[in-house]
Nucleic acid binder design. Structure first.
Length: 295
DNA sequence: AATGAGACCAACCGCCATTCC
DNA sequence: CGGAATGGCGGTTGGTCTCAT
């Protein structure tokens, strides 16, 4: 038998506290671990004078009190990494968490359930399905990547905040092209402005947005067959997220992009909406493009 | 100002594998 | 080797917060 702590009897069990931790409990746990280290959680709980199960103490420590636990929103880089790793490993939250320093499996799981699955629901697609993975890979990840670029590059002319695309998508003639930039992986960004807003448009090298309008396709609706479009991307996928001229793509609003899929107009360019409030912190992984073949 | 819906997240639960005696 | 304790994991729940009406 490991250790000498017997399981709580009925009386002790009814005495156990549950629910949110108090500051005093946190202090007890912190001080005990500082002196004696972690592990042997049932014993620890008892010795520390906590009326909690060992499991509860362990969870509190790992998910909240441990000094290296990072707080705050997930950065675009971290989100990218989660999408990438989930694609590889599925719901192996702890394994995924190992690759995001300071993030807990619980946090990643919560992120997946609240953000990612929500998008899948809105698309009427199983979040574990190939189809949804394709959507994530082809539309969401590039949007996040763009957020990453716009946040990381101090010299970039890509605006840090880009407004939501209108449903008409492509700029009317009254809008001015205020900046054009060649981005890595063979696509261009166009920053355009009107009196009320600016938009960032990403596209393969097809010319200015106003010219691209010529080949715009009919709007895509929720019940349209997205699969065919996805497979057309797959066929031409060579490490970039954009195929050649003539293939349709979607409006997409960064993190909140997925609801837009299927309900906004379809255009031959790629519209990003970046909410700068989402951008916090940094993470290291820079391997995304270099591992493009994986996708 | 009240309230209802939805989002978020900390905490719990149940199961399983491992460790220890 | 068997049984009990423990740790770890993924799924779920419920409380709180935010925002729209």
């Amino acid at each position: 038998m490991r250790g000498s702590v017997s399981p709580p009897n009925r009386e002790e069990e009814s005495d156990l506290r549950r629910g949110p931790w108090t500051r005093e409990e946190d202090n007890l746990l912190l001080h005990y671990i500082a002196r004696h280290g972690e592990g042997r959680w049932n014993l620890l709980a008892k010795c520390a004078g906590l009326k909690r199960t060992g499991k509860s103490c362990r969870l509190r420590w790992l998910n909240y009190l441990k000094p290296d636990v990072k707080r705050g929103n997930l950065s675009p880089q971290e989100q990218l990494l989660i999408l990438e790793l989930h694609y590889k490993w599925g719901n192996r939250w702890s394994k995924i968490a190992q690759h995001l320093p300071g993030r807990t499996d619980n946090e990643i799981k919560n992120y997946w359930r609240t953000r990612v699955q929500k998008q899948a629901r809105q698309l009427n697609v199983e979040s574990s399905s190939k189809r949804f993975l394709d959507v994530v890979r082809l539309f969401w990840m590039p949007a996040l990547l763009q957020k990453t670029n716009s946040h990381d590059s101090t010299t970039s002319s890509i605006p840090s905040s880009i407004t939501s695309p209108s449903t008409s998508s492509i700029s009317p003639p009254s809008q001015d092209l205020i900046n054009q930039e060649q981005l890595p992986n063979g696509y261009n960004s166009y920053e355009i402005s009107s009196s009320s807003q600016s938009q960032l448009i990403l596209s393969p090298d097809l010319g200015k947005p106003s010219e691209q309008r010529e080949i715009a396709e009919a709007p895509i609706r929720a019940d349209d067959n997205v699969e065919g479009l996805i497979s057309s991307y797959d066929q031409s996928f060579d490490g970039n997220y954009f195929n050649n001229m003539g293939s349709p793509s979607y409006n997409i609003d960064g993190m909140d992009a997925m609801p837009a899929l299927g309900v906004h107009d379809c255009t031959p360019s790629f519209l990003c909406h970046v909410d700068e409030n989402d951008i916090v912190g940094h993470v290291v992984e820079d391997s995304f493009w270099t591992t493009g073949g994986l996708w």
